[in-house]
Design a protein around this nucleic acid. Structure first.
Lengths: 271, 271
DNA sequence: GGCATCAACACAGA
DNA sequence: CTCTGTGTTGATGC
């Protein structure tokens, strides 16, 4: 459930379901996921009521009144599931919230995730969320000129590294970036400063349309939402299609190491 | 006058000449060389007497009693000249000290140098000298085991980078390192961790013998000492001998870019 | 040929 | 498919 479309889809569902529910108790099987000792975590959550759920980048922000904010990152894969009253909470959930009405929200991290809580007044000093960059689906902040400026600021970096850095744009991960770069015909290692203005505009459009499209489909087909339903996005153009033909020119898609991440590219279209 | 042999030769001469001389005034043509405002520089130097001159790495340490330390780095080339009473101080000297007996010490920096002064009590907080590494000609601190440990600590770095880092060993620059690496038959880019124990021992011996030999000759032939005399070291094996035959095998010496510095190597001997 | 500072990158750990 | 330190390297300016 990692990138912006899945996270935002989840936060929308959580906002619709959880508003008004009060946390009656928490169960924590993996305290390493927390940012504070368990006793402090309980003190800041139990007895408080969800009033709003939003998201930025790969983080879910759950407002708990009075005075707390619960911050959730599902890391490289993981789920947040809603359980109706009477339904059992599955085993091996790192964290679970029990609500006063008998329902529950359980969290499962495949490899690593974060379940943090901070007093509302200290939200701005939560390092992992306070420096998140632009929201690519917010047209007011993610403007063309802001994007163009960003690429100038980081002109010596590989374009892929710029787009994946959450301090620049929040929410793009190593999945959606594959087709975004393909759509803009850009090799992941191109220096940001070498990307022409026309290419930047293609890239700007590709980021927005790719993420918006995936969000409309409810995210990736291999991720589950709040109701354990799969998303509808599965038709990658080059992402994770090693050896398959490029949809534009037919050349076999290559999987290449680019810095510390893997990239799937059409070697003839992306330069 | 950059590396350990020249700097130590100079500091020995300064120690012999300047002990007992009192600073009557300073002339500063280039305040950027100073670490403090000129008025503060004068306050900490004028009226004080030289009691000792030593060196570590590429820095000269002049003890000024009472209570100050003058720190001199000649950077990428530069001179410190002693002028007897009545002799004129040359033009374009960035800094000059006038002594009470009429003599003077003038400093010239070819590109950049530092003329710093600190109260003795604050010497340990002078960043540029406080973290200098081992003195390669001091047998008590630059032991074989200390050297071997150093290479293990930085095993992922290129051997040249390790030796040039003044925090590890203080005093080797891009001139003397050329023949040191040649003598140990090491390519500059070899990872420190890949250097065998036998090679490390060769390298350890090469560092000490190269620097000691150059010191005995009074430093490089193209540098000048306190009396404007040239040093006697000029017979490089491979350093700055691009295209000339390797003294061991006859292969033409190559000049290659190694990271951000230039290296002169025998491509057949150094691997 | 020096040194400090900053940005980018690689790697390990959680 | 995550993110954060740490350490290393490279570019820049004085």
């Amino acid at each position: 459930m990692p990138e912006l479309p899945e996270v935002r889809h989840l936060s929308h569902q959580m906002d619709g379901e959880l508003r008004g529910r009060t946390i009656a108790g928490v169960d924590v099987a993996q305290p390493k996921c927390l940012n504070v000792p368990l006793s402090e975590f309980e003190r800041l959550t139990v007895g408080r009521t969800v009033t709003k759920v939003t998201s930025r980048g790969k983080w879910v922000f759950v407002t708990l009144e009075p005075g707390s904010m619960f911050l959730l990152s599902l890391g490289m894969g993981g789920e947040a599931l809603l359980h109706a009253k009477g339904e059992p909470v599955p085993d091996n959930r790192q964290v679970a919230f029990r609500f006063g009405d008998g329902s529950a929200l359980s969290l499962h991290f495949w490899w690593f995730g974060y379940a943090h809580v901070v007093p509302s007044a200290e939200l701005s000093s939560h390092a992992m969320t306070s420096r998140l960059g632009l929201d690519p689906l917010n047209e007011v902040e993610f403007t063309w000129s802001a994007f163009d400026y960003l690429l100038e600021m980081r002109k010596r970096s590989a374009i892929k590294a710029v787009l994946l850095d959450q301090k620049n744009i929040a929410g793009i991960g190593n999945v959606y970036i594959q087709d975004i770069l393909f759509a803009a015909r850009l090799h992941p290692m191109r220096k940001a400063g070498d990307v022409s203005s026309a290419e930047r505009q293609d890239l700007y459009g590709a980021i927005r349309s790719q993420l918006r499209h995936a969000l409309e489909l409810g995210g990736l087909a291999y991720e589950k939402d709040l109701y354990n339903q799969s998303g509808g996005f599965k038709d990658f153009l080059v992402g994770y299609r090693e050896g398959k033909p490029c949809p534009v020119c037919g050349t076999a898609v290559q999987k290449v190491k680019t810095g510390s991440t893997a990239s799937f590219i059409c070697p003839s279209c992306q330069t």
